[in-house]
Each structure stands twice: as C-alpha cells, then as structure tokens.
C-alpha cells in the first residue's frame, strides 16, 4: 500500500493507506483524531471540515494521498498552546454556540477559515460562509453570534441576550 506523509497539527505523521482512503478516515482511524466527524456522505454537512495548507476543506471529499506533504489542522489543533480554548472555541462556549457538539468541530474550522480571510465579517457574510455546515441543534443563532464575537465585534445588541 502507498505511504502518505503529512503534518497534522504541527506533528509529522505518516501511514500506509489505500488509494481510496479518505483524509477523514486517515485522521480518525489512522491518527485517532476523532474530533473530525462524518455526518453525511455527500460533502454537504461540513462536520468533517479541516484546514489543508490553511484552506478550509471537507476531509470526506479528499483522498489522504492527495494531501501528501501538506500541513493539516484539525479541531484538536485549535486550542492555545497551554491547552486553554482558542479564541473561536472560547467564543462558542461563551455564546452557547453548540449543543450536541457533533457539527461543532466543523463549525469552528469553518469559522476560523472565514476570520483568517475576513477578520470583521458582517452577519450576512458569516451566514453565507457557513452555508456548507449544517447544525440541527442551535438554529444557527448562537453560532453566528459566536463567530461575530470571535471577530471582536460587539454582539451585545443581538436579540435574546
């Protein structure tokens, strides 16, 4: 079987994979990084979102071999170096932007990609950016609010707070 090598959350990893092994399978089964979730088979739900070389990618849509040599970041790599919640993670907790937690890793990764590109997004831009991430629990209210808060914007005027 071919061998794949990449850096995941700053750590060099490698493993033998089949040609059909998806990145998400490599991460979950090969590396034990089960924070990245599989919620659908059609690249719609976004629970498997990770970053590959800084870009937001649905890891159920790429083969592990396709990211050979790449820099991959998963939800497990989003905390601060001292282990405390990173800025976006903390905003999700502060604003109750998660309930069952299943879509959450994908939401955080999508939000991080948005804020890297657009540090002060509008509400509409946040909602548009999260188009590829489905949440069934929150009605999106507190997710959108958390992302706006993580961008440093004042969310105190947003309803129901």
């Amino acid at each position: 079987m071919p061998k794949v090598t990449m850096r995941v959350n700053g750590r060099a990893v490698s493993g033998e994979v089949e040609g059909r092994t998806l990145l998400v399978q490599f991460l979950r089964e090969g590396q034990g990084l089960t924070g990245t979730h599989v919620g659908c088979d059609t690249s719609q739900c976004g629970a498997c979102t990770v970053h590959v070389n800084g870009a937001q990618v649905k890891s159920c849509t790429v083969f592990a071999l396709d990211v050979d040599g790449a820099e991959v970041t998963t939800i497990e790599g989003m905390a601060n170096p001292d282990g405390t919640l990173g800025r976006i993670q903390q905003a999700f907790q502060d604003h109750h932007g998660l309930q069952c937690g299943f879509c959450t890793p994908g939401m955080v990764m999508a939000a991080a990609a948005l804020l890297a590109e657009n540090p002060k997004p509008t509400e509409a831009e946040v909602r548009h950016h999260l188009e590829g991430n489905i949440c069934r629990c929150t009605g999106y209210h507190n997710i959108v609010k958390a992302v706006l808060a993580a961008s440093g914007q004042d969310v105190s005027a947003i309803a129901a707070e």
């Binding site: 993670q89 959450t104 890793p105």
Partner: peptide, 21 residues
C-alpha cells in the same frame, strides 16, 4: 452558566459511539 461539556466538544475530545475503537 456556561456549559462544562463544551470543553470536550470544542477540543475534539467528545466520545461518540463511532469514535470508539
């Protein structure tokens, strides 16, 4: 009160059935 369970969900340390090996 902020939710204590959020810490594990936000850091990828939740354990759902499919995560078990």
């Amino acid at each position: 009160q902020k939710r204590r369970e959020d810490i594990r969900f936000l850091t990828g340390r939740g354990v759902y059935t499919d995560d078990l090996k």
